[in-house]
């Protein structure tokens, strides 16, 4: 598996990561090596094996009563926001 610089640009775009042009060859090399390494999995016979998503497979998703458990802490949470105004998060203009 050898990723091209264009593959890395595509993956970075999907992952919403700005990668500088000069770093692209290094990521192409690193990611290719990682994918080669994990390709070992092909050698395992898994034709009759069920996939496992979670260690506690017997566990079913717990449900709770439909009651209000949280109070609004908007002001507290927005103390960490880069830019807010009147309780709203500000981002660059999306619709012209």
């Amino acid at each position: 598996m050898s990723l091209t610089p264009d593959d890395v640009r595509t993956i970075a775009r999907l992952a919403r990561l700005a990668i500088s042009e000069q770093d692209i060859p290094r990521y192409a090399d690193n990611l290719s090596r990682i994918l080669d390494f994990v390709a070992q999995l092909d050698q395992a016979d898994t034709s009759h094996v069920a996939p496992m998503a979670h260690p506690l497979s017997s566990l079913t998703q717990r449900l709770r009563d439909d009651v209000v458990t949280e109070t609004s802490q908007r002001d507290l949470f927005q103390e960490n926001a880069p830019q807010v105004d009147a309780g709203l998060y500000l981002v660059p203009k999306v619709i012209e």
């Binding site: 994990v38 092909d42 395992a44 898994t46 094996v49 996939p51 496992m52 998503a53």
Partner: peptide
């Protein structure tokens, strides 16, 4: 999906 199966193994 393959890794989820090897995880089972």
């Amino acid at each position: 999906l393959k890794a989820q199966k090897t995880r089972t193994l």
